[in-house]
């Protein structure tokens, strides 16, 4: 009697759903990605209270050397020479969107004088929604 040849099983890992998972992750990253408009490296002050800052906010950053950079929230931040330029930028932004959120991202060791100039400029530009960017204060900081 002739023996039936055993059915040959091809080793096969089911990879069909792998792409689904991968694309799901891609969509997640694409939705959550926020493009940083300001890449200034600063040591932020630490606070206990911290609230979420809306996306697309305009940024004014002050680096440890007191240099000021501004961004309207859409384009990368650019260096300005004086606080008066902050005023003109803020006034332009506020003219198109009076409720625009402004974020002050300043290094914690910058003298108050410098931040004061920036706040004064923003105040004169009639900015209504202003946030001070900060890091979380933890028990170790106390």
């Amino acid at each position: 009697m002739k023996l039936k040849a055993s059915i040959e099983h091809k080793p096969n890992i089911p990879t069909a759903s792998m792409a689904d998972i991968a694309f799901l992750l891609i969509i997640f990253f694409m939705l959550t990605i926020t493009f940083e408009v300001d890449k200034t490296q600063v040591q932020l002050p630490k606070t206990t209270l911290r609230y979420e800052i809306p996306k697309k906010a305009a940024y004014v950053s002050v680096d440890p050397n007191g240099r000021i950079r501004v961004s309207d929230g859409n384009s990368q931040s650019s260096l300005v020479s004086a606080a008066d330029e902050v005023l003109s930028m803020a006034a332009t932004v506020i003219a198109t969107d009076p409720q625009k959120t402004f974020v002050v991202k300043s290094d914690g060791d910058v003298p108050w004088e410098k931040v004061d100039e920036v706040l004064d400029a923003l105040k004169r530009a009639k900015v209504r929604d202003l946030r001070l960017l900060s890091d979380q204060r933890t028990v170790d900081d106390l």
């Binding site: 979420e52 800052i53 706040l119 105040k123 001070l132 960017l133 900060s134």
Partner: peptide, 12 residues
């Protein structure tokens, strides 16, 4: 860091 303190500016 996208969190911070809101800072109320008095009306100019």
């Amino acid at each position: 860091a996208t969190r911070g303190l809101d800072f109320a500016l008095p009306e100019d």
